[in-house]
């Protein structure tokens, strides 16, 4: 009789405990693996930066494990509570666009070729720390011939883990924007902050047009 209860119980436990790493590591691993697959997908190969379709596909993947709202919220900090819902939404939107504009142009064939030696095996998942709903996962990336220590910060929301910060050798995406936003918000209202981010995007677009003309 005892066995009859014990075996299903054992099975339940076996299924509940992930085979490797905790939940945060699992989420990150699945997310990064999917991202790499789409990044390296040959059908999107291009010489001149990322195509719209590729961008769309990448967004689809990243949105599954990276929480942009959380990054923006934390970058703004306590002042966030004074933002209206509308301002919050507009800020997240424009900030995302700025990051796309700034970094997306690195995505071209040359960049992807460099990534070619880089696959799921080039990411080593080292340590995982969990405290309440926050987690940090340490990894080692072998992007080129040099190994990089890269850490990810995650937050748990509605039983799912989301990445909200990436830290490469002490440089945190969140930290740098936190400083940038904090100093801007000393002088600017939320609406002005959003406007200056929009201006930044326009500048980049103008600069890019110049570069193509040369």
């Amino acid at each position: 009789m005892k066995k009859i209860i014990a075996i299903p119980l054992l099975l339940v436990f076996l299924c509940a405990v992930p085979a490797y790493g905790g939940q945060p590591t699992q989420t990150l691993k699945v997310g990064l693996d999917e991202l790499l697959t789409v990044l390296k997908d040959p059908q999107y190969a291009t010489e001149e930066g990322v195509s719209d379709e590729h961008l769309e596909a990448l967004r689809g993947v990243v949105f599954n494990f990276f929480d942009f709202g959380e990054l923006t919220r934390r970058a703004v900090g306590k002042t966030w509570t004074t933002f209206t819902d509308d301002q919050r939404e507009r800020l997240v939107k424009v900030f995302t666009k700025l990051l796309e504009k700034t970094y997306i142009r690195k995505l071209n064939t040359q960049f992807l070729e460099e990534l070619n030696g880089f696959d799921g095996k080039s990411i080593q998942y080292l340590e995982e720390k969990v405290q309440g709903k926050l987690a940090m996962v340490n990894t080692k990336l072998k992007l080129t011939d040099k190994e990089l220590a890269v850490d990810f910060k995650l937050i748990s929301k509605q039983d799912k883990w989301w990445v909200y910060d990436i830290i490469g050798e002490g440089l945190t995406l969140l930290g740098i924007y936190k400083d940038d936003f904090r100093s801007a918000l000393l002088k600017q209202t939320p609406d002005e902050l959003i406007a200056s981010l929009e201006q930044r995007i326009k500048d980049i677009e103008a600069g890019r047009a110049d570069a193509q003309a040369q």
Binding site: L58, F66, K106, L173
Partner: peptide, 18 residues
Amino acid sequence: ILTITAILSLFAGVGLGF
């Protein structure tokens, strides 16, 4: 390191199609 961060941010930056 800034480049690295830039490349990494790309992972983040390409995110989130609104």
